[in-house]
Amino acid sequence: MTVEVSGRSVLLTGAGSGIGRAAAVEFARRGARLTLTGRREEPLRETAGLVEEAGGEAQVVAGNVVEPGDRERVVRSAVERFGGLDVLVNNAGSVRAGRLEGMEEDEIRAQLEVNLTAPILLTREALPALRENGGDVSEAAVVNVSSGFGLAAMPFYSVYGATKAGIAHFGESLRRELYGEGVHVMNIYPGATETPMMDTNEAGPELGFQYESPEAVAQALVEGLEAGELNVVRGAEDRSQMAESGREDPRQADEQIASMKDDLLAAVQGHRSL
């Protein structure tokens, strides 16, 4: 089954910048009608303007998907404005890199809540509407934005990596739970992407951070969705090699990563977007 985008109602979290903003524009170019949500209204309004320039239609519903009332409100708004909900994109995320013992408890909990708990609960809230709109011709869909760190674990991203692996496994399990019921689930695993979330990360190609544009990730997301893909992996060759190495010979992988550990910590210890 493929997932039609044109004319369909899409709810997109974290739509104020980065991959979320680029995805909104890409969906708009393909005729989707968008409900944009995030914590701050002004960036969402800017995204809505870009959507309209691209020929799309958007409404802005500012809110924090960590809050139960906001989750219910944003789903209701999508259904009321566009007559239903066809696609949910769980894109909002937060990161705090560094040594685990150097993190505050609230920094750990924020990553767990934003990256894992909130998208699971938002999906639960949205499922009745998605089920109603999933049909024989084109399925409804849930898209989970994971991370390359959800495939290959790296030091100093223990909590972030756990949340991104968790949302990926959630997606895989939910896909099988909903198989044949009109709702498709796709995971996407971006690598390092040129977004505001990465502004405080000083790691470059020498440490394995090969950056791409949010527009490239957004295009891959929407094209993968339309093609009915199960998983979309960016930086696939390097990422797959790292993941395979971690599974097949984890001790060797540990030793390879250890050789750059000090430089990596210096580059990412200030990486924070909460």
Score class of each variant (00 low, 15 high):
Gly7Ser: 13
Arg8Trp: 06
Leu12Phe: 10
Ser17Phe: 07
Ala23Gln: 03
Glu26His: 01
Arg33Cys: 03
Arg33Leu: 06
Gly38Thr: 10
Glu41Gly: 05
Glu42Ile: 07
Leu44Ala: 09
Thr47Phe: 05
Ala48Trp: 00
Ala48Lys: 07
Ala54Glu: 11
Ala58Pro: 00
Gln59Thr: 11
Val60Arg: 06
Val60Glu: 06
Gly63Asn: 12
Val66Tyr: 02
Val66Leu: 08
Glu67Gln: 14
Glu67His: 13
Glu72Ile: 15
Arg73Gln: 09
Arg73Leu: 11
Glu80Tyr: 10
Val87Arg: 00
Val87Ile: 13
Arg96Asp: 04
Gly98Met: 15
Gly98His: 05
Arg99Val: 04
Met103Glu: 09
Asp106Asn: 14
Ile108Thr: 10
Ile108Met: 09
Gln111Cys: 11
Leu112Ile: 15
Glu113Tyr: 14
Leu116Ser: 06
Thr117Lys: 09
Thr123Ile: 11
Leu127Cys: 08
Leu127His: 02
Pro128Tyr: 10
Ala129Ile: 09
Leu130Arg: 00
Asp136Leu: 11
Val137Gln: 15
Val145Leu: 04
Ser146Trp: 00
Ser147Asp: 08
Phe149Lys: 01
Leu151Thr: 00
Leu151Cys: 12
Pro155Glu: 03
Tyr157His: 14
Tyr160Val: 02
Tyr160Gln: 08
Ala162Lys: 04
Thr163Trp: 00
Lys164Thr: 08
Ile167Trp: 05
Phe170Lys: 05
Glu172Ile: 05
Ser173Val: 15
Leu174Asn: 09
Arg175His: 12
Arg175Glu: 11
Gly180Ser: 07
Val185Phe: 04
Met186Tyr: 00
Ile188Gln: 00
Ala192Cys: 09
Glu194Lys: 12
Met197Asn: 00
Ala203Pro: 02
Gly204Trp: 06
Tyr211Gln: 03
Glu212Trp: 01
Val217Lys: 03
Gln219Phe: 09
Leu221Thr: 01
Val222Ile: 13
Ala227Lys: 10
Ala227Gln: 11
Gly235Thr: 01
Glu237Ala: 13
Ala243His: 12
Arg251Cys: 12
Arg251Leu: 13
Asp254Cys: 11
Ala258Tyr: 15
Lys261Asp: 10
Val268Thr: 03
Ser273Ile: 08
